[in-house]
């Protein structure tokens, strides 16, 4: 029986004390254990940043690739072996900045990947610059005039008809863990935006700040099947910030449509040069 201990880190964790990532790590371990998933069945794919270090503090298969390129690498691995549970992990810089084009494509494609975007509205690894989701006017060393218009990842995802969209909060491990479970179990691409306080560089969007604002959609009789309603929730930011399942829709899953996978994962299909004689005939 798999337990949280099976996911315990084997190397020292290099995050700041009090970092929201600790809670996210805890929520992810809990979700995987509750889904009875063993480490060797999971592939964590991540990019660069503080959040993408997370796979190193888990147990599982890990492909820690380039900044912003998590989703292409995860997609390639998932198509090569669709029996793997593939979880992508990035910060807001990787997910909504450097890799935003890949995010749009991944949501349209709808490969069965769960993508966690640790959204702390600031760059941690490079020490405190504005991120795509920093609030308007957020002053940093690279944005002395204040950050520009923030990206709206939820609205962006909805515009691509993402098949699963949720927002969690690092200050509520139980709730986040439930969302992660739902995302992992969802057939198709799931984006889980995670509000994550950064204790070192973001002194505005703190635990306290979030606690005063977040509320759970499920407590309000919200319908996650209603796309227009979801768009409306995606616009809410300020005194009240919604968390929970924003939108969910069954859509054809990319890899399930591929004829080449009908005989099983590509990595398990034998390489047989002799099967190609008929293709040579076509050039005669």
């Amino acid at each position: 029986m798999v337990t949280v201990k099976d996911y315990a880190e084997s190397i020292p964790i290099a995050w700041c004390p009090g970092c929201g990532n600790f809670a996210i790590l805890q929520a992810l371990r809990k979700a995987l254990v509750e889904l009875k998933t063993e480490p060797h069945q999971v592939l964590f794919v991540s990019g660069i940043g503080q959040a993408p270090k997370l796979p190193h503090y888990m147990q599982g298969n890990v492909f820690n690739g380039l900044h912003g390129r998590t989703l292409p690498a995860a997609t390639g691995a998932k198509i090569a072996n669709h029996e793997l549970i593939v979880i992508g992990i990035d910060g807001d810089g990787g997910a909504y900045g450097e890799g935003v084009g890949h995010l749009l494509a991944a949501m349209r494609r709808n490969v069965n990947i769960t993508y966690m975007a640790h959204n702390n509205q600031v760059y941690g690894l490079t020490k405190g610059q504005a991120s795509p989701t920093s609030d308007l006017g957020f002053v940093t060393r690279t944005t002395p005039l204040g950050a520009g218009q923030p990206a709206n990842p939820l609205a962006l995802a909805l515009s691509s008809d993402v098949s699963f969209l949720a927002r969690g909060f690092a200050g509520d491990v139980e709730h986040l863990s439930e969302l992660l479970k739902m995302g992992i179990e969802h057939r198709g691409f799931s984006l889980i935006d995670i509000l994550q306080p950064c204790v070192s560089f973001n002194h505005k969007n703190t635990y306290q700040w979030y606690r005063e604002r977040v509320y759970k959609l499920e407590d309000e009789g919200y319908d996650p099947g209603d796309k227009i309603g979801a768009f409306a929730k995606a616009q809410e930011w300020g005194d009240r910030i919604p968390i929970g399942l924003i939108y969910s829709k069954e859509r054809p899953v990319y890899e399930e449509q591929l004829p080449a996978l009908k005989k099983g994962p590509l990595v398990k299909q034998k390489i047989d040069p002799l099967q190609f004689e008929a293709l040579l005939d076509e050039f005669m």
Binding site: P72, A73, G76, A77, K78, I79, A80, N81
Partner: peptide, 11 residues
């Protein structure tokens, strides 16, 4: 990056 991901997975 996708090809590298697929290569890592063994295809």
């Amino acid at each position: 990056n996708m090809a590298v991901g697929a290569g890592y997975a063994g295809a």
